[in-house]
């Protein structure tokens, strides 16, 4: 693949006592969309701000297209950043907001060039009718579209998006998410997209980097991370409903829970004590021996979530389509042993 477009090399940042980022290594290939996923306080935003040049790292390098940019001013980096909270300058119209980055010194764009870029961007994002409105007279979705417009109108070499959809309605998020995937692909500009939303991470990323407490826990394709998470912490951050995590020990090639229920076959080479990760869609409501009581049935239209108690512990089961189950029903779930993720447990807690 040649040299990566962006290389983050051994990056660390400390604020007082907190290690916001420790020893981060990351690549971003040309044209790639990398999602950085993590809970609040994981260091996602700090990482973006260092790449943008708004923070200086305590150690490590940011290399873009072979050039060390670690200590360059933001203006020299030619990256566009979409902030989570800031959307637009309230005292300017939509057009002035879009013009602002183009009028930056050193960009030296002609008047016609500026006008062309703005009309192209406005058409692309379907905000052309809004151009002369004050930024304060926009709905949440329109504002976010214009904010994204501010980023793409510049034609930068890298997009940095910091949870741009977090404060929007669910429906709007869903629509803009698909628009963003298309936009990034059509423009071909590499993008780092920071989010804590599990749906955004899986559906948008070419690759996902899972960040927790300033460290990268795993990097890989969405399939990789969803199906083969390297730790329970990673597993819990992806997928909806959340993964079932069950602590077990092995006896006679069966995994037994703490309540001594043998729930699924174990591999001969598996460790003695382990945590199992079972995705809700890999538990089937029949075919097993241990009874489970259904406590709630959530019919979501295309699929149904069953919440219940199985082997003395809560479980989530995901069924495609509608079901005939009701709260209070007893089912005998079974698990596909090939679809279970096993992590060895070394010391008792």
């Amino acid at each position: 693949m040649g040299d990566p477009f962006l290389k983050i090399d051994n990056l660390s940042k400390v604020y007082g006592e907190t290690h916001a980022l420790s020893d981060i290594f990351l690549f971003l290939h040309a044209g790639e969309l990398l999602v950085v996923l993590g809970p609040t306080g994981a260091g996602k935003t700090t990482l973006l701000r260092i790449i943008a040049g708004l923070e200086v790292p305590d150690a490590g390098r940011v290399v873009v297209e072979g050039m060390d940019m670690t200590h360059c001013l933001p203006a020299e980096r030619d990256v566009a950043l979409v902030f989570q909270n800031f959307s637009l300058y309230p005292n300017k119209t939509v057009r002035q907001n879009l013009e602002f980055p183009l009028r930056a010194p050193g960009r030296n764009l002609s008047k016609t060039e500026i006008a062309n870029r703005i009309s192209d961007t406005a058409n692309l994002l379907r905000i052309a009718p809004l151009l002369d409105r004050p930024a304060t007279h926009l709905s949440g979705g329109e504002m976010q579209r214009v904010a994204i417009g501010r980023a793409i109108v510049r034609q930068p070499r890298l997009f940095l998006f910091d949870e741009p959809l977090t404060n929007l309605d669910a429906k709007l998020r869903e629509v803009l998410r698909v628009e963003l995937i298309r936009l990034q692909r059509d423009l071909g500009t590499p993008m780092i997209y920071v989010t804590h939303d599990r749906v955004e991470a899986l559906s948008m990323g070419d690759r996902i980097a899972v960040l927790s407490e300033g460290k990268i826990l795993q990097i890989g394709s969405p399939e990789d991370i969803y199906q083969r998470p390297n730790s329970p912490v990673v597993a819990r951050q992806l997928g909806y409903p959340p993964i079932n995590l069950i602590e077990v020990h092995k006896r006679a090639d069966q995994w037994f829970t703490a309540s001594n229920h043998g729930i699924v076959a174990a591999d001969r080479n598996a460790p003695q004590r382990a945590t199992l990760g079972i995705r809700p869609e890999n538990i089937f409501p029949h075919g097993g021996e241990i009874p489970a009581t259904i406590e709630a049935v959530e019919n979501l239209g295309a699929s149904t979530i069953l919440l219940g108690t199985w082997a003395d512990r809560p479980i989530h089961i995901l069924i495609t389509g509608e079901t005939q189950w009701h709260p209070g029903d007893v089912i005998y779930p079974s698990v596909d042993p090939n679809r279970v993720v096993v992590w060895e447990r070394r010391n008792e807690e």
Partner: peptide, 11 residues
């Protein structure tokens, strides 16, 4: 973020 946006925009 108002000024940071301007910084990233090239000011």
């Amino acid at each position: 973020a108002y000024e940071e946006a301007a910084l990233v925009d090239g000011y």
